[in-house]
Simulated scan of single mutants.
Amino acid sequence: MEKHNGGCYCGAVRFQITGLPLWSGHCHCRSCQQALGGAFVTWAKVAAKDFDVTKGVIKTIRKTPGIARGFCGDCGTTLTYSAETEVAGQDWSADAWFAAATLDDPSIVEPKAHVFVSHQQPWIKLADGLPASEEF
């Protein structure tokens, strides 16, 4: 099975995924906007068993109840997202979510949808033809 590497801006944290992401999408929720400082973030997921931190430690912040956002404690790069409770009726504990752009080769990710477009900024115009959901 192929392996793909990624990590933070400064190189203090590195990770490896086994295989290709199982799903990916662009999240426009206000929480992601504030946490990442952008209009949206592209998340990807693999099975939790297929995500390994190979260097450093991912620090977490839990501002939203039940949500842990992982980042590099040195440079602040957002790396991971995990839900400790069900999201949209799904148990996410078997998945590892990571910011797609933190892969060394983010072109392996193929986003499938836009989610939380109810929070989409008015200056973002979607023209990629992907499905868009008001929530997740």
Rank of each mutant, 00 (worst) to 15 (best):
G56V: 07
G25M: 10
A39P: 15
P122N: 12
G70R: 00
G73T: 07
D74N: 15
C27T: 09
K59Y: 08
Q34N: 13
A132F: 01
I61A: 11
G129V: 03
R62G: 12
W92K: 13
A12M: 10
F15P: 09
A101H: 11
K59R: 12
A48G: 01
A12Y: 08
P106V: 03
S107F: 00
F15A: 07
V57P: 07
T77G: 09
P111F: 08
C32P: 05
Q90E: 13
W23P: 01
C75K: 01
E86H: 15
A100N: 02
W43E: 06
F51M: 03
S93R: 11
A99D: 12
I108C: 09
H26E: 09
D128H: 01
T60I: 12
G6S: 01
A127G: 13
C72I: 10
D104K: 08
A100V: 01
T60Q: 08
D95T: 07
I17R: 02
T18E: 14
D74T: 14
C27H: 05
I58G: 03
G56F: 02
A39N: 11
E110H: 14
P65N: 02
R69A: 01
R69I: 12
A132Y: 01
W43I: 05
T54D: 09
I58C: 03
Q16C: 14
V117C: 07
A83L: 09
A101M: 09
F98D: 08
L36Y: 11
D105N: 14
Q121C: 08
R69M: 02
E84K: 14
T54F: 06
K45F: 10
M1T: 15
D95F: 15
A47P: 00
L20A: 11
G37A: 02
R14P: 07
V117T: 15
D91W: 05
T18C: 07
C32W: 08
F136L: 15
A99V: 14
L20P: 00
A99T: 15
G70K: 00
D128R: 01
S93V: 05
F51T: 07
T18W: 00
V117G: 01
P122Q: 06
D128E: 02
D50T: 01
G66K: 13
S24K: 07
R30K: 15
F15H: 05
N5C: 09
G6H: 05
A35P: 00
F15L: 08
A48D: 10
E86V: 09
T54K: 05
V53E: 06
G7V: 03
G38H: 07
C27P: 09
H114K: 06
F15G: 11
W23E: 10
I67A: 12
D95Y: 15
K45W: 09
L22A: 11
C72T: 06
C72L: 06
K63W: 13
P122G: 05
A96N: 06
H28M: 02
Q90K: 15
L36F: 14
A132M: 04
F40C: 07
T42M: 10
A35L: 09
S118N: 11
T60Y: 14
V115D: 03
F40P: 02
K49S: 13
D52H: 13
F136Q: 10
G37Q: 03
A39H: 08
G70F: 00
T77V: 05
S31A: 13
F51A: 04
K3P: 04
C75W: 02
G6D: 03
Q90R: 15
V109R: 12
I67H: 06
C32Y: 04
W43V: 03
